[in-house]
Simulated assay, not measured.
Amino acid sequence: MPWFVKIESGKIDKIIFDQYVPAHKAFVQDLIAKGHKAKTGYWAKMGGGMLLFEAASLDEAQAIISQDPLVKNGCVDYQLHEWKIVVE
């Protein structure tokens, strides 16, 4: 299955953003349970973060991302890319 990456930057105050982090973590746990091998995290020195996951197609990846609480609640701007792994 192809890998996809959502690269994001926050666009709201951290106090509001942080209210949606537990729901985002639950969303990622659900992706893992469904077999998408998701990983999520944030940049140590600059704002924003990344979600890495498997999906059958770009359309499925976009549908998945549309359900992310950080996206649904307007917390982030993001780019979605298919990631071509060269070495595993």
Score class of each variant (00 low, 15 high):
1 M>I: 14
1 M>R: 09
2 P>K: 05
2 P>E: 08
2 P>H: 08
4 F>W: 02
4 F>Q: 09
5 V>F: 00
5 V>R: 01
6 K>N: 13
7 I>H: 00
8 E>I: 15
9 S>H: 07
10 G>V: 15
10 G>A: 10
10 G>W: 00
11 K>Y: 02
12 I>W: 03
12 I>F: 05
14 K>I: 15
16 I>V: 14
17 F>Y: 09
20 Y>C: 11
21 V>F: 01
21 V>H: 01
22 P>I: 13
24 H>K: 08
24 H>Y: 09
25 K>W: 05
27 F>W: 06
29 Q>E: 14
32 I>Q: 15
34 K>H: 12
36 H>S: 12
36 H>L: 11
38 A>W: 00
39 K>G: 00
39 K>Q: 08
40 T>A: 14
40 T>G: 10
40 T>F: 02
42 Y>A: 11
42 Y>V: 14
43 W>S: 08
43 W>H: 07
44 A>D: 06
44 A>V: 13
45 K>L: 07
46 M>P: 03
46 M>E: 05
47 G>Y: 03
49 G>E: 08
49 G>S: 03
51 L>C: 09
52 L>V: 13
52 L>I: 14
54 E>I: 05
54 E>Y: 03
54 E>M: 08
55 A>H: 05
55 A>E: 08
55 A>P: 03
56 A>C: 11
56 A>Q: 12
57 S>M: 12
59 D>R: 02
60 E>D: 13
60 E>F: 11
62 Q>T: 14
63 A>W: 02
63 A>L: 11
64 I>Y: 01
64 I>F: 02
65 I>Y: 00
65 I>L: 11
65 I>F: 01
67 Q>K: 09
67 Q>W: 00
68 D>I: 15
68 D>R: 04
69 P>M: 01
69 P>T: 06
70 L>W: 03
70 L>Y: 04
70 L>P: 05
70 L>M: 11
70 L>C: 06
71 V>P: 00
71 V>H: 02
71 V>W: 03
73 N>G: 07
73 N>L: 05
74 G>V: 10
74 G>M: 03
75 C>A: 06
75 C>Y: 02
75 C>W: 02
76 V>M: 03
76 V>G: 01
77 D>A: 08
78 Y>W: 12
78 Y>H: 13
78 Y>V: 15
79 Q>F: 13
80 L>V: 11
80 L>N: 06
80 L>Q: 08
80 L>P: 03
81 H>A: 12
81 H>D: 10
83 W>E: 12
85 I>C: 01
85 I>L: 06
86 V>Y: 01
